[in-house]
Computed example of a mutant assay.
Amino acid sequence: MAGALALLGILNDPGQSAKLLLVAVCDGVVSLFAFLFPWHRTGRNAAAWLGLPAFAVLGLSTWSFGGVATGTGPFLVLLYAWAGLHFPRWILLAYLVPATLAYLVPLIVTDQPESILGSAFVLMPIALAVAMLIEAHARHLRDDRERLARIEQWRSAMMNTLAHDVRSPLSAIQIVLDELREDATGVPARMLDMARRQTARINRLADALLDVQRIDSTGHLKLDRQLYPARELVTDALSYIRVDPPIEVEIDAGTTIWVDKQRFEQVLLNLVSNAHRYGSAPIVVRLARDGDVDRLEVRDHGPGIPDSLRENLFGQFAVGGAEGVGLGLFIVRQLAEAHAGRAVAEARDPGVAMVVTFPVTPDFSG
């Protein structure tokens, strides 16, 4: 900035072009060195050494213009503000000596009066105070960021551990239930079927937790997309849950959809579970083509959702409480975006419709 302003100053005062060019070149050299030097290989505070040549250039500028410090003061404060953003307070205090010399020495050499020299006793405390305030605020922000990073690390480890610890015993339970179901009839068979469905539901919850962890760490999920008969895919997924009255499915025969089957089932079951928990019957599942996307719509006939809440409904932990932790709709949105689609909540009268879009396969022409 100082170098650019010096070059612009040549246009305003051509008679001082040689001095302004000298200042601009010195600023440019310092800036170029700061840009090219591999600071990542040095210590955390190594860049503080840049303050010394910067102060020197400020002193050169004041001396070149016969002791006129009009431009030195603001840039000296700016240098201190930069230091406050990046370095601890002991470096700010250490800067007092070179900063004061850079300001006073050119004034002394050019025989400036005592009133001008005395301005240092006002400028330097102000520059230091500004830098101290910035340093304190920046330090608090860094501490908060480190604390949030530790919390996030703990949360990720907890979710990862929980998901894996849940899956291990579930596998054994699933095997036992399958063995018992082979010979069961009547009421025991229906009870075992219910237990198997709930076991599968817990398994999907563990998968969902792992999905959240993968999304947070990599930002994307790897999908295995294929073309499926939509009605068959939906009815198979809904067989995992039982609600009363039954869920209504409105999908034309012959409709196909290009999705990752496992992820699609997660989306559908999360939406249906959400509608059953917070809405009212009947719950209707529709899937139809709309231009270049397939629209999956899960509608309930409950009281609906306020407009202000609908905008943030698919955020992480946006909704939750005694009946859930608010991850279901967040996972729906992430899985929709992994398919290059989107998830939205649309108002209905009565109720609300959760709509997820899935792009039509590029080579599909039906």
Rank of each mutant, 00 (worst) to 15 (best):
L269C: 02
V259H: 07
L271P: 05
A253S: 09
L268K: 01
V284R: 08
S273L: 05
R289D: 06
V272G: 05
A253R: 04
S273P: 00
E265F: 02
W258S: 14
V267K: 02
G254V: 02
S273R: 09
I257S: 04
A253P: 00
V259Q: 04
Q266A: 10
Y278E: 03
K261T: 06
R277W: 00
A281L: 05
V284C: 01
V284H: 05
V259E: 03
Y278S: 02
I257N: 08
P282Y: 13
V272D: 04
V284P: 01
K261S: 13
T255S: 12
E265M: 00
L268N: 06
L271G: 06
L269Q: 06
R289V: 06
T256D: 14
A253N: 09
I257H: 13
A253D: 14
K261F: 03
V272W: 06
I283H: 14
N270M: 11
V284D: 02
R289F: 01
S273V: 03
W258T: 11
L269E: 02
D260V: 09
Y278G: 00
Q262V: 11
S280Y: 09
N274Q: 05
N274L: 03
A275D: 08
T255Y: 02
Q262H: 12
W258Y: 15
T256G: 07
L269N: 11
K261M: 04
T255L: 14
T255C: 02
T255K: 07
H276T: 14
N274A: 04
T255V: 08
E265N: 06
R289C: 01
G279S: 11
L268M: 07
L269T: 06
F264K: 05
Q266C: 04
S273F: 07
Q266T: 15
A281E: 14
W258M: 10
A275W: 06
W258Q: 08
N270Y: 12
P282V: 03
L268Q: 10
N270D: 15
D260R: 02
V259A: 04
L268R: 07
H276M: 02
R263G: 08
K261C: 02
K261P: 01
I257Y: 13
Q266H: 15
V272A: 04
H276C: 00
L269Y: 07
Q262W: 11
E265P: 01
V272K: 02
R277F: 08
I283T: 15
L269S: 02
N270F: 12
Q266N: 13
A253M: 00
L271N: 03
V285C: 10
H276W: 12
A288F: 15
R289N: 04
T256F: 13
L268D: 03
R286K: 15
A281D: 15
Q262L: 11
I283N: 11
T256Y: 14
Q266P: 00
V272I: 10
A275T: 05
W258F: 15
W258P: 12
Y278D: 00
R263A: 15
R263W: 05
R289E: 12
Q266R: 03
G279W: 14
H276D: 10
S273M: 03
V285P: 13
S280K: 12
T256S: 12
F264R: 01
